[in-house]
């Protein structure tokens, strides 16, 4: 029982518990906050998986920017909680639960039964170095994945412009 196992257990418990809280929460603000805690747990798991840069990125971008954007929209639109009546949706509700439990149980069971998948070790230039993986990540991003990187920047520009246009008020 070394520290890594304990940290893994705590982080995954945190992530799963708070994602369930998010699922059962009625108020949108509280579900966003539960998701923030879930992403924190996932960031801790990313650190355990030798990806501290991705963990920092998850907290900065996902938990710190995207979910803040969600909060802003919730505050701007002043959304109240979901309506209490589920009359027209009862059959859909039960079918949905059945689908999720069935498929989820099946896939989770298969994953558990499969154990550790046999994967070949990666090739030379992409091997994660022992001490610090950030220089290699930067180098790979700007050499081997350059096209995807540039396309991503264009995509982000499009998203920014598109969001501005979509949410503009039309003054008639």
């Amino acid at each position: 029982m070394n520290t890594e196992t304990i940290v893994f257990a705590l982080a995954s418990a945190l992530a799963i518990v708070f994602s369930l809280v998010m699922l059962f929460q009625r108020k949108p603000v509280k579900s966003v906050l539960s998701l923030v805690v879930t992403f924190f747990g996932l960031a801790i798991l990313s650190v355990l998986l030798a990806a501290p840069f991705i963990a920092a990125l998850q907290v900065i971008v996902y938990a710190g920017a995207i979910l803040v954007l969600f909060l802003f929209v919730i505050m701007l639109l002043n959304l109240e909680q979901e309506a209490a009546d589920k009359e027209t949706r009862k059959i859909h509700f039960y079918l949905g639960i059945l689908a999720v439990l069935g498929l989820g149980g099946l896939v989770t069971g298969l994953t558990l039964r499969a154990g550790n998948p046999p994967v070949p070790v990666g090739n030379g230039p992409f091997l994660i170095p022992a001490k610090d993986e950030i220089p290699l990540l930067g180098k790979v991003l700007f050499t081997d994945y350059l096209l995807a990187f540039e396309a991503l920047s264009v995509l982000l520009l499009l998203a920014a412009v598109g969001a501005l246009i979509l949410s503009k008020r039309r003054f008639e």
Partner: peptide, 27 residues
Amino acid sequence: MRGDISGQVIVFFVIAIAAAEASIGLA
């Protein structure tokens, strides 16, 4: 498991794409 950094690069891209998609979706 593979010791391959390409997985981390893909996650980097997915996070950035999620940001773009979230902004458009919320708009």
